[in-house]
């Protein structure tokens, strides 16, 4: 009986003792209160952490690396000569026929084309040309577009002038403009690049102008103006860093679009000159007999699709990773 009465008293005492051990007074330290314990943040490190966190990105990057290596190094190891086998009479062989007739070699594993040319060597040489074209066009159009677009959005005087120019040029059909230009200045590699870039930057610049307009009058930009920051540094330090993810998204759709554009225009016969091997030419040459000799048609189609899809997927995922909102997970 006595024990039962004593128990709650003991409990309280025990609790008090325990609490004394658990809690103690700490002196106030204003410096410690300001300290940030979170790990240091770095923008690009976070971008790549998020990007490589996705397994599919690693697979896509591996395929992209293989395609790039094959396109830019393989043609030097195995030079492609489309007209070199005209006398051998080996036109339109299927892969198995070609290997039976000519012996096993990398050159013949995809069979031969209309002139007895090697399809396998052909697609890599053509891919190199098409990729080079699209990278050069994307580099020119993107840099012009970003620089002009940033100034266009930022400066009201430039805005009114460029809006008029844009309205005039944007209403001329792009395909029409390119085909007329190719007829006028010829169809070499350089003139094709010129035709694709003469007005190609305008659309990008207009898009960038809209993006810049959105963030131009945000409060942190007003603050920079109060601090006397010149326009160029506001654009490079305040505006463009905010648009990284938008720019990467744009790049991800621009590069593949030039490859498609080249294939499409060359196939129509208004693109690259006939003596320059390109994916568009290979598809165009094989289209007449694509049911009879499918390997000659589908191989270049497959390569151009793989390049466009992989570039697009990698670009889109990189754009997602470069959006700082995805870094806070």
């Amino acid at each position: 009986m006595s024990e039962i009465v004593r128990q709650p008293f003991d409990m309280a005492k025990m609790k008090a003792q325990q609490e004394d051990e658990l809690f103690y007074f700490v002196e106030q330290n204003p410096e410690a209160a300001e300290r940030i314990t979170a790990p240091r943040y770095s923008y690009w490190a976070s971008v790549f952490r998020i990007f490589f966190h996705k397994k599919s990105n690693i697979v896509a990057l591996t395929i992209l690396a293989i395609v790039l290596l094959m396109s830019f190094i393989y043609p030097f190891i195995a030079p492609y000569d489309p007209m070199g086998h005209l006398r051998d009479g080996i036109a339109n062989l299927s892969p198995s026929e070609a290997i039976n007739k000519l012996g096993f070699s990398m050159e013949w594993i995809l069979g031969t084309g209309v002139w007895g040319n090697s399809i396998f060597y052909g697609i890599w040489t053509s891919a190199r040309i098409s990729l080079t074209l699209s990278l050069i066009c994307a580099a020119i159009n993107m840099s012009l577009g970003i620089i002009i677009g940033a100034v266009w959005g930022y400066n009201k005087a430039v805005d009114s002038v460029l809006n008029v120019i844009y309205n005039i040029i944007a209403n001329v059909p792009y395909i029409l403009l390119i085909s007329v230009l190719v007829y006028v200045i010829g169809s070499g590699f350089g003139s094709f690049v010129f035709a694709l870039t003469i007005t190609g930057w305008l659309g990008i610049a207009y898009f960038m102008r809209t993006q810049v307009l959105i963030i131009r009058d945000r409060e942190y930009n007003l603050a920079s103006r109060c601090l006397g920051t010149p326009m160029l540094r506001i654009v490079t330090k305040n505006v463009l860093p905010y648009l990284t993810s938008v720019i990467v998204t744009l790049l991800a759709s621009e590069i593949p679009s030039y490859i498609s554009m080249e294939v499409y225009l060359t196939y129509l016969g208004i693109g690259m000159a006939a003596d320059i091997p390109s994916l568009g030419h290979m598809i165009g040459d094989a289209q007449a007999a694509w049911i009879l000799y499918p390997w000659a048609f589908w191989s270049p189609v497959a390569i151009s699709s793989i390049i466009t899809i992989i570039l697009y997927v990698v670009g889109q995922n990189l754009a997602d990773a470069s959006d700082p909102r995805s870094h806070m997970k």
């Binding site: 409060e219 942190y220 006397g228």
Partner: peptide, 30 residues
């Protein structure tokens, strides 16, 4: 330089893509 402003919203008035060092030095550099 002589007339400065302190803004209402501290979240909106600092450049999120710059370090504190750049934000404070911005005027000094200008």
């Amino acid at each position: 330089r002589k007339i400065q402003m302190i803004f209402q919203d501290p979240a909106a008035s600092l450049n999120e893509r710059a370090t504190i060092e750049y934000i404070i030095s911005e005027g000094l550099i200008n």
